[in-house]
Design a binder for these strands. Structure first.
Length: 590
RNA sequence: GGUCCCGUGGUGAAGUUGGAGUUCACGCCGCCCUGUCAAGGCGGAGGUCGCGGGUUCAAGUCCCGUCGGGACCGCCA
């Protein structure tokens, strides 16, 4: 964790290096004054703190140093007297005595405690004084863990033959997908650069350029609303490689992710399992399944194939989740109010309704609809769900996609633990559909991923005839229900790319106008290639035991996109706007 | 754009059917204290209850609006 030699002109060691083997040595340490414990005229204990830890200094109580003052202490390392060892800190067996104190800087009292109690402070206050928040052990640990992850990824990628190449931050606007941040051009008033949502276009051009294996730990920017797992700006491991299939890509990315996880946690996760998109939707109702808990979707369509119950009679797909009373006693015992709320939730998510059934003593089904279900249906229901007394069964009957997604969301609502809780469950989701549904206004298929994904070779022929049945050579990496990243084999054949664009309602002329600079190069010998990108902030947050990426970012934005410390974003003066040829509209009146 | 939660000395909280800025812990300042380690004891300072309206004899408390923060939905190809 520390460099071999931490001595500088001002210090000989770090606080955290003060262990028993240093006893007898004269050392000089620099750091901040943590806590001060006074014991009469000629004795006080100071906790001296730097990033490596704290060490106790025994000083004369006449020394005037206070909370967070920056001091330089020269003293002798001594074993603590019998009975005064502190087992709770790594340096607890020793202390510094005969201390000479030099004040390097004094300090106002900090607005919040620079210790674990800072965790409970309003996050807005922490962000306003982020430089003090980062002094705390938690943030020091998180940022250094992040650095270790970055380093492990770089080592892994380089050892696998990848070349690190930086790509531009200022690029043309390509207004597909996420909203872009725009940067006005001074030399060409009225024209704008866009900041990259990802280096996608650049890295594919690097494949045309014969780089073969590219990677970059790249900053990406998206002007979309923020969340616990989303910031305007975020870091991605961005990679692309030539002459590969999807297994090559997933193998190499898995190697880097496993190396990062090992660097962060000290233990290597098992090989990353795979699941098709259809399996994920069918069994978990979501394309980023959280495998840490069961409550899988149970197939019931055949059970109710000839039911008298109207709500089930004509449904394409009937599925259930079983909330085990043994695992989720509160949720399974939900009263009428909670069950009504669940029903409302299901309707909001697109279901026509939600059927709830409680399994009471003697396996009697308690439900408003129990009387509509035959004895065989009830028995089969119990058999399929393996429900026992005290369990709650939630059933949705609808089109397949709706049934799955509604139950998948309810499953997460009811059973999902905080994202950082172990165990870590990585999973590759493969065989995503090329298109997801039809856009009602344009009557064209909607892209599942970006439009450069290569269709599955077996499905290319159905691109025009049955577009919704076409699988893409696309894959996502999921950890504990968070999408870490996604990738695909790209289209390298210009004609196939045009066919895909046409399916999306983008004419050849439109494609040339919007992506010409990108498509033109593919005429000059683009190799087959594919790649991947995954979010470093998300991976680090989970590995650091945090459920919010702000905790692993030095200077994050709030949920409304502002920075309480710098007050960004701010207005700019008229001269700056004039130079850019920009005139502001009056504020909208509500 | 939407739903829900939060806003009380520097920090974290409590504040009842509406009745005096009341309370608790930490921090801060001063004094005391020679083995503590989130030290301890005594004393003190510190608040426009986010802001603006309204109801009321009376509002931290009820109502409306607004600002800020958070969780989620939409959005994030």
């Amino acid at each position: 964790m520390t460099a071999k030699n931490n001595s500088t002109a001002l210090r000989t060691h770090l606080c955290g290096e003060m262990h028993a083997e240093k006893i007898g040595q004269k050392v000089t340490l620099c750091g901040w004054v943590g806590r001060r414990r006074e014991h009469g005229e000629h004795l006080a204990f100071l906790d001296l703190r730097d990033y490596s830890g704290i060490v106790q200094c025994v000083v004369d109580n006449s020394v005037d140093v206070r909370s967070e003052w920056v001091i330089r202490v020269t003293g002798t390392v001594q074993a603590r007297p019998t009975g005064t060892v502190n087992e709770n800190i790594p340096t607890g067996k020793v202390e510094l005595v005969d201390c000479k104190i030099e004040v390097l800087n004094n300090a106002e009292p900090p607005p919040f405690p620079i210790d674990q109690r800072g965790d409970d402070v309003d996050e807005n206050v922490r962000l306003k004084y982020r430089y003090l928040d980062i002094r705390r052990e938690r943030m020091q640990k998180n940022l250094r863990l992040r650095a270790a992850v970055n380093s492990a990824i770089r080592k892994s990628m380089e050892s696998q033959g990848f070349t690190e190449i930086e790509t531009p931050l200022l690029m043309p606007s390509t207004p597909e997908g996420a909203r872009e941040f725009l940067v006005p051009s001074r030399n060409e008033p009225g024209s704008f650069y866009a900041l990259p949502q990802s280096p996608q276009l650049w890295k594919q051009l690097l494949m045309v350029a014969g780089i073969d294996r590219y990677y970059q730990i790249a900053k990406c920017l998206r002007d979309e609303d923020l969340r616990a797992d989303r910031q305007y700006e975020f870091m991605q491991l961005d990679a692309e490689m030539s002459f590969v299939n999807k297994d090559d890509v997933m193998t190499m990315i898995s190697t880097a992710v496993i190396a990062a996880a090992k660097a962060a946690t000290g233990s290597e996760p098992p090989p990353i399992e795979r699941m098709t998109w259809h399996e994920a939707m069918n069994d978990y109702g979501i394309d980023k399944p959280d495998l840490r808990f069961a409550m899988k979707l149970v197939e019931l369509t055949k059970v109710f194939a000839s039911t008298e119950f109207k709500a089930f009679a004509s449904a394409e797909s009937i599925k259930a989740i079983c909330v085990r009373g043994a695992d989720y006693p509160l949720q399974a015992a939900s009263g009428r109010n909670k069950l009504d709320a669940l029903t409302e939730r299901a309707k909001k998510l697109g279901a026509k309704g939600l059927v709830w059934i409680k399994v009471a003593d003697g396996s009697v089904l308690e439900s408003p609809v129990a009387k509509f279900l035959s004895a065989k249906e009830q028995a089969d229901l119990i058999a399929q769900t393996k429900a026992t007394v005290g369990d709650l069964i939630l059933i949705v009957a609808d089109q397949w996609a709706t049934t799955c997604s509604v139950l998948g969301q309810l499953r997460n609502d009811l059973g999902r633990p905080p994202v950082h809780e172990g165990p870590y469950r990585y999973v590759w989701i493969v065989d995503f559909p090329m298109f997801v549904g039809i856009n009602p206004t344009t009557n064209k298929p909607q892209p599942g991923h970006h439009p450069f994904c290569h269709p599955h070779q077996e499905d290319v022929d159905r691109l025009e005839t049955e577009p919704l049945s076409v699988r893409a050579l696309a894959y996502d990496l999921v950890l504990n229900g968070w999408e870490l990243g996604s990738g695909s084999i790209r289209i390298h054949e210009p004609e196939l790319q045009r066919r895909v664009f046409r399916q999306l309602g983008i004419s050849d002329e439109d494609a040339d106008a919007r992506f010409g600079f990108f498509l033109q190069p593919f005429k000059y010998g683009a190799p087959p290639h594919g790649g991947f990108a995954f979010g470093i902030d998300r991976l680090v947050a989970i590995l650091a035991g945090e459920d919010n990426i702000r905790e692993v970012i030095a200077f994050p934005k709030t949920q409304s996109g502002s920075d309480p410390m710098t007050n960004a974003p701010t207005t700019v003066d008229a001269a700056q706007l004039k130079e850019l040829g920009i005139r502001l509209l009056p504020p909208a009146i509500k």
